[in-house]
Simulated assay, not measured.
Amino acid sequence: MTGIDTGTSTSPGTGPGVRGGGSASGPHLPTELAAQLRALGVGPGGVLLVHASLRAIGTVVGGAQGAVLALEDALGPAGTLVMPSQSWQLCDPQYLDDPQVPAERRDAVRDALPVYDRDWTPSRTMGAVAEVLRTQPGTVRSAHPHRSFVARGPAAADLLARHDLDDPVGEGSPLARVHALGAQVLLLGVGYDKCTALHLAEARSGLPVARVPNGAPLLLDGHRVWVPFEEPAVDDSDFLALGEAFAVTGRERSGQVGGTTARLVDVRELVDFAAAWFARTRVPRA
């Protein structure tokens, strides 16, 4: 499940450092973080897809709430902040294949899962920053019960309007709109292995993709219904290597934000590069 942030992932910086004031050791003021984000290149009025680890950033005044305020400050009122808010606890137990759930209990677990509720269903392992954005007044959430995104800002409703059950990270997902709108991707204290936009690159690589069965509990006509579907199998095992290859091109900006390294990239450049890279590296060579 790419985009999952346990709060412990960090990765070393590449490229020139960019600083905007403040102390590397903290406590970090939201205004200082916002200045560092602007110095890094976050564009006011743009769309910003963020994957963040609060633990990596360090002590922020206001905690995760302060971090969200810093991101929104850097974007300004015309900007739109986007984050993954996956709730994969609602996946089919058979799909998750959790060893802690024995085979004889999986039907019972499936029947007991609560329905997906955009307002109430919490994200799981997305990190404190994403969860705070999810609960912020004015935030919009997409309809997918496992792979949802949240967004806040003028473009939020447009970004999240479509999220197909059977295409959660491809052309039927908010990632396609993020790409169409020319968003930036910010990896704040995490590596490319957390970058959900790379799944869109998988979909656009032209490689054959296996489909796997899944399902979710949804509310239909006032009743809980288990809805089965198939979705593309995804593979993030080479995302870190992809990130290293992309950084070499010089199209990644990196610098200090708070106590961690931040990476900022253009989503179109990243996805287009990655789609070609996957097509080349994932195909067995003769």
Rank of each mutant, 00 (worst) to 15 (best):
G63A: 09
F229S: 06
L200D: 04
P30T: 00
G21R: 02
F278C: 08
A216C: 10
D238G: 08
L242K: 04
D164S: 15
T249L: 06
Q100F: 11
C195Y: 03
L198K: 02
T2P: 14
V42L: 04
M1V: 02
M1F: 10
G3Y: 04
L29A: 15
V185C: 05
L240E: 13
V185T: 14
P122Y: 09
D266E: 15
G15P: 07
P137S: 11
V115Y: 03
V209S: 02
A233N: 01
A78M: 05
A151H: 06
P84N: 05
V109M: 14
A39I: 05
G66K: 06
A151I: 04
F149R: 13
A108I: 12
D107G: 12
G215V: 03
D119P: 07
V42C: 13
D236H: 15
V132T: 14
R19M: 10
Q86I: 00
G62I: 00
Y192D: 15
D193E: 15
T59A: 13
L90R: 05
L264A: 10
A156P: 06
V109H: 10
G62S: 01
P217K: 00
E32V: 00
G127H: 06
G170E: 01
G20S: 10
H28K: 04
P77T: 05
Q256A: 15
L71D: 03
G58M: 12
G45P: 02
H199C: 07
L54I: 03
G243I: 12
S142D: 10
G13E: 06
L198Q: 12
D111A: 15
F273G: 12
V82N: 13
L81P: 08
A112D: 12
R141M: 12
M83K: 06
D97L: 10
D272L: 07
R224G: 11
L69T: 08
S85P: 02
G258C: 06
W88L: 13
S53T: 02
R110A: 07
E171I: 12
P16M: 12
W88T: 13
Q184I: 07
R268C: 11
A39M: 07
A197M: 14
L69Y: 01
V225K: 10
P27L: 05
G15H: 03
P154T: 03
W226Q: 08
V61G: 01
Q256G: 14
V109T: 11
R147I: 03
G79N: 01
K194V: 00
P228W: 03
L264W: 09
H146A: 03
V190P: 09
R106Y: 11
G222Y: 09
P217H: 04
R280A: 15
L207M: 04
A78C: 05
Q89I: 01
A183H: 04
D235V: 15
V68E: 06
L48Y: 06
R147D: 09
T6H: 15
Q136H: 11
E269V: 03
D266H: 11
T249I: 09
Q86P: 12
